[in-house]
Amino acid sequence: MRLWLSILLAGAACVLTSPADAGVTVLLKTRTYAVSGETGADLIGAMGRTGPMQGFMTRSVAQTTYAVDWNLVTQTAGRACRIVQAEPTLRLTYTYPEAGDLTPALAKRWKVFLAGTRRHERGHGRIAIDMVADAAGKVAGMSLSDDPFCRRLRAAAHRRIDAIKAEYELKQQAYDRKEHGPGGHVEKLVEALIAEP
């Protein structure tokens, strides 16, 4: 069972960024990859062979990835520079397996498995959205008194964004530890999928 688990969602890739309220734009994309099999174990094996790469050596069943573009709107007054608005755009991508031609019993278990997998990935997405919202709020209003071209202020803002991102990466990791741990959500999904009637 542990082998299937490590093959399965060996740590869905993390997300770190974006808010759907305070001036944040979230661009959502969903990708799929094909798997096939006659049993739940077959499907788990197919995901382990063809799922999205997680690092250099491991594949995961599903994955959440992101990229954030920041538009920092600045205003100068004399030699002073201030960030009056932080406008992040989060490009959030979910990748899921897709299976066809399943027996009715396996299709029913697959549907439950996929719904649970989507729920797990959306959890990563929520953490990313919270991170971006947090960063946007903490960057807007930053200022420097002697930075007429705003270069130092922009660099300082990106350092702050990176620090906040690192904090939320720890939250992503804690979320995965809970979800993937013994008796966790992911283990239960795998067990239900490979259970034969």
Results as ranks from 00 to 15, higher is better:
A156R: 05
A107V: 04
A166K: 10
A105R: 14
T103W: 08
Q173N: 15
K171H: 13
A128N: 05
V112R: 14
V139F: 01
I161W: 04
K171F: 10
L106R: 02
L106D: 04
K188D: 06
M142Y: 07
R177S: 14
R126D: 13
P148D: 04
V112A: 15
P197Y: 06
I127E: 02
S145W: 03
E167F: 07
A136I: 06
K111W: 14
L170M: 13
K111H: 15
D176K: 01
V132C: 11
A174Q: 15
L153G: 00
R126I: 13
L153C: 03
A174S: 15
W110G: 04
E196R: 05
R177Q: 15
E121G: 07
A133Q: 08
T117N: 03
E191W: 09
A128F: 05
A135M: 07
G125R: 06
G123V: 10
W110R: 03
Y175T: 04
I161P: 01
R152G: 11
K108G: 12
V190Y: 01
A155T: 10
D134P: 00
R119Y: 13
D130P: 08
I129T: 00
I127S: 03
G181D: 07
A115D: 13
E169C: 11
G137S: 15
S145K: 08
G137N: 13
L144A: 05
R109G: 05
L144C: 05
L189I: 08
A128S: 14
F113M: 09
V190S: 00
L193K: 00
S145P: 00
G125P: 01
R122I: 12
Q172V: 10
R126H: 13
G181I: 08
R122V: 12
P197I: 09
R151D: 08
G141Q: 06
R119G: 08
R126C: 08
R122H: 10
D176H: 05
Y175L: 15
A163V: 04
G183Y: 12
L153Y: 01
A136Q: 05
R122P: 01
G125N: 08
R109E: 10
G125Q: 07
R160W: 09
A195P: 00
I129W: 02
G125C: 09
K188I: 11
K178C: 09
R109H: 12
K108C: 09
L114H: 09
R152V: 03
D134H: 10
V139M: 06
H124G: 04
S143C: 08
M131R: 02
K165N: 10
K171R: 15
K171I: 13
A133M: 09
G137W: 08
I127T: 03
Q172P: 05
G116E: 07
